[in-house]
C-alpha cells in the first residue's frame, strides 16, 4: 500500500495514513515532501506501534511503515 501525501497540507497526510492503517494494513509506504508532514506521520506511526524506515528521495521522503510485533 502506498499513500501519496506529497503537497497535501497538514493534517491530511496523517488522516490519509490513518485511513489505510484503520483498514488493517500491516505495512505501507507514505510519500511526503515537507518536514512537518514527515514528522507528523512518524509521530502517528510511533503512536500506532509501527516501525518507520526513512528513505530520502528527490522530492522528500518515502516512509516505510511496518507494524512491530
Amino acid at each position: 500500500m502506498e499513500v501519496d501525501a506529497r503537497g497535501l497540507s497538514c493534517p491530511q497526510p496523517i488522516i490519509e495514513t490513518k485511513k489505510v492503517v484503520d483498514k488493517g494494513a500491516k505495512s505501507l509506504s507514505v510519500l511526503v515532501d515537507n518536514i512537518a508532514s514527515k514528522e507528523n506521520v512518524m509521530r502517528f506511526a510511533k503512536a500506532m506501534k509501527f516501525d518507520v524506515v526513512v528513505n530520502d528521495t528527490d522530492y522528500g521522503w518515502k516512509l516505510d511503515l511496518k507494524e512491530n510485533d
Binding site: 497538514c10 518536514i35 512537518a36 507528523n40 509521530r43 510511533k46 503512536a47 500506532m48
Partner: peptide, 19 residues
C-alpha cells in the same frame, strides 16, 4: 519546533499523542 495549536488538539484526539 512546528509549534501548532490546532495540531496539538488534533494529535490528542486522533491518536492520543500529546507531543
Amino acid at each position: 519546533n512546528r509549534f501548532c495549536m490546532a495540531g496539538g488538539v488534533r494529535d490528542q484526539f486522533l491518536f492520543r499523542d500529546s507531543t
